[in-house]
């Protein structure tokens, strides 16, 4: 390859990356750097002018003793773990079932994808009414089958579980979609060989399908986990973090500090800490799955 070609290559290499880099630097790096700086400051407003007052690491120190923050991290972990696991399992089995039937496949596929079309805020409103203690359809069904009606959103024993159910309803389709795509792209010949060898359905599933799908399961899991950690719209409309602190999730706590209370410095420290935690968690999840995959 000539020198001219190499120069031209380098030119195009830069040009093709430039737009993405520009968006990242301007619209993500700058705000995030500001956020990081903000976490060491307090911002005061007087006479329409802002002053940044350095606070050192005091926000981070305060964070360590903030009970609400701890509760919200725990709730978010619990929420994400249960919801995403539920979504993955359900999405996987729905995908298996859908690919295993001949007729009606397209219809099922379309129906199962519908929930991702709904904005979170509408989902919140619908489920709020369906969960209503006095006239919600869920309590009607519960009464119909002879159980006691509950205040699903107002009782701290059920509130988080109720939100998890909504999240599973909302996001299983996403996992379903990615699982389906992964299933359909598996090579047929392996399965044919296994069937000829007389392997049972479950044996094939365990020994062939799952290991082959592991990379895409992992990617979907991580992708969903990140989204689940950011859960906000539904909680906002359904419970507002209550009753007590039973549905206090991290996005919501940050939102309150940052916006409602206008403690931007403290809110920023919370954001930074949270995404360091998520990053650690995700690296751990990936490392763990990789290790298990390589040992089995």
């Amino acid at each position: 390859m000539g020198r001219a070609a190499a120069a031209s290559d380098r030119f195009w290499r830069n040009v093709t990356l430039a737009p993405a880099l520009a968006l990242f630097v301007l619209l993500t790096a700058l705000p995030l750097i500001e956020l990081a700086l903000l976490s060491f400051h307090d911002v005061d407003w007087a006479g329409g002018v802002s002053t940044w007052r350095s606070t050192g690491i005091s926000h981070y120190v305060a964070l360590a003793g903030d009970n609400l923050f701890r509760v919200s991290i725990l709730n978010t972990l619990l929420f994400s773990a249960i919801a995403v696991t539920g979504e993955m399992v359900l999405g996987f089995f729905l995908a298996l079932l859908t690919t295993s039937v001949g007729r009606g496949r397209t219809i099922y596929r379309t129906v199962f994808l519908l929930p991702i079309l709904m904005p979170g805020i509408i989902i919140g409103a619908i489920w709020k009414l369906m969960y209503s203690f006095d006239f919600g359809v869920i309590n009607e069904i519960v009464t119909l089958v002879g159980l006691t009606p509950r205040d699903w959103l107002g009782d701290s024993h059920f509130a988080l579980a109720s939100i998890i159910v909504v999240d599973i309803w909302h996001w299983t389709p996403f996992c379903f979609l990615l699982m389906l795509a992964s299933l359909e792209s598996l090579p047929d010949d392996v399965f044919e060989a296994a069937e000829i060898d007389g392997a049972s359905y479950w044996q094939i599933l365990r020994a062939i399908t799952l290991p082959l799908m592991l990379p895409s399961i992992l990617v979907t899991f991580v992708f969903r986990l990140i989204l689940a950690f950011k859960v906000f719209d539904e909680v906002y409309l359904l419970t507002g973090g209550g009753p007590g602190t039973s549905t206090e999730v991290i996005s919501f706590t940050i939102y309150r500090r940052f916006f409602t209370e206008d403690r931007v410095g403290y809110g920023a420290a919370m954001s930074v800490t949270t995404f360091v935690l998520i990053a650690i968690l995700i690296v751990a999840v990936i490392a763990l799955t990789r290790r298990r995959a390589s040992t089995s």
Partner: peptide, 14 residues
């Protein structure tokens, strides 16, 4: 990936 982790609400006002 890191950017994807930040809750969008914290970016909105920035």
């Amino acid at each position: 990936v890191i950017f994807h982790m930040v809750p969008p609400i914290t970016l909105a006002s920035a």
